[in-house]
Simulated scan of single mutants.
Amino acid sequence: MTENTFADPSYSVENYRAHRPKYPERLYKDILEFHDSQNGQRGVAVDLGCGPGIVTEALTSYFDTVIGVDPSQSMIKLASQCAPDTLQGKLEYKVGSAEDIPVEAGSVDMITAGTAAHWFAPEWWSTAAKVLRSGGTVALFAVARPFYTLNSHPEAVKINTEAREVAMSSLTDYMMLKGNQVARSMSSDLPLPPSETGTWGPVDRRVWNKDGAVEGEEVYMSEKLTMKEMKAKARTGSPIHRWAEANKDKVGTPEDPIEQVAAVVKKLTGWSDEHVFEIGYGLSLVLVKRL
Rank of each mutant, 00 (worst) to 15 (best):
C50L: 09
D100L: 13
F147H: 05
V166M: 14
L132S: 05
P52I: 10
H153M: 06
P71T: 10
G201N: 07
T172Q: 11
Y281D: 01
V143P: 08
E99K: 08
S12G: 00
E155D: 15
N247M: 06
M1F: 12
E215H: 07
A83S: 14
S61R: 14
K77A: 15
C82S: 15
N209Y: 03
L132K: 00
C82V: 11
T65H: 02
V261D: 01
R184E: 15
K233A: 13
D173A: 14
E278C: 09
H118Q: 09
I279T: 10
Y174I: 02
I240T: 12
D273L: 03
D173W: 03
R205P: 01
I279R: 10
V95P: 06
D204N: 15
V203G: 08
H35T: 07
S195V: 14
S107E: 09
L59K: 01
V131Q: 01
K248I: 05
P84N: 10
M75W: 07
G212I: 04
E259I: 05
V265C: 11
W243Y: 07
V207Q: 09
H275Q: 14
E25Q: 10
A262N: 08
S170N: 14
L171W: 00
K94P: 01
P84H: 07
C50H: 01
T197Y: 13
S126G: 12
K130H: 15
A117E: 00
V143E: 07
T65S: 12
P191F: 12
K22P: 02
K248C: 09
R133W: 05
R242D: 11
T197K: 13
V69T: 06
L91E: 00
T65Q: 15
I101L: 04
G179C: 05
S185I: 03
T5H: 04
L140C: 09
H35Q: 07
H35Y: 06
D211E: 15
Y174F: 13
Q88R: 14
V286S: 07
T161V: 06
V69W: 00
A116Q: 03
E99R: 06
Q88L: 09
E33N: 12
G43F: 11
R206H: 13
K233T: 13
N160G: 09
T269P: 07
G198Y: 06
Y220T: 08
T112S: 00
L190K: 07
T161A: 15
D249K: 15
W208R: 00
S12Y: 04
A144P: 11
A129L: 11
F63D: 01
T2Q: 15
T112A: 02
L225I: 07
A213C: 06
D189T: 12
D70T: 01
M175F: 00
V251C: 12
A144Y: 06
M168H: 14
E245A: 14
A139G: 03
L287M: 12
E92P: 02
I159K: 04
D109H: 10
V138N: 03
S74A: 15
P194C: 10
E92R: 11
A213W: 00
P146Q: 02
K90I: 09
R242P: 02
T65K: 11
L140F: 12
V103M: 05
H35E: 08
E123G: 11
P52V: 09
D109S: 08
A113Y: 00
K289W: 03
W124S: 13
D189H: 11
G216A: 04
R205V: 01
F141S: 13
S12E: 08
A121I: 11
A139Q: 05
M175C: 14
T253N: 06
T86G: 12
A58V: 03
G40A: 02
N15P: 09
T60L: 09
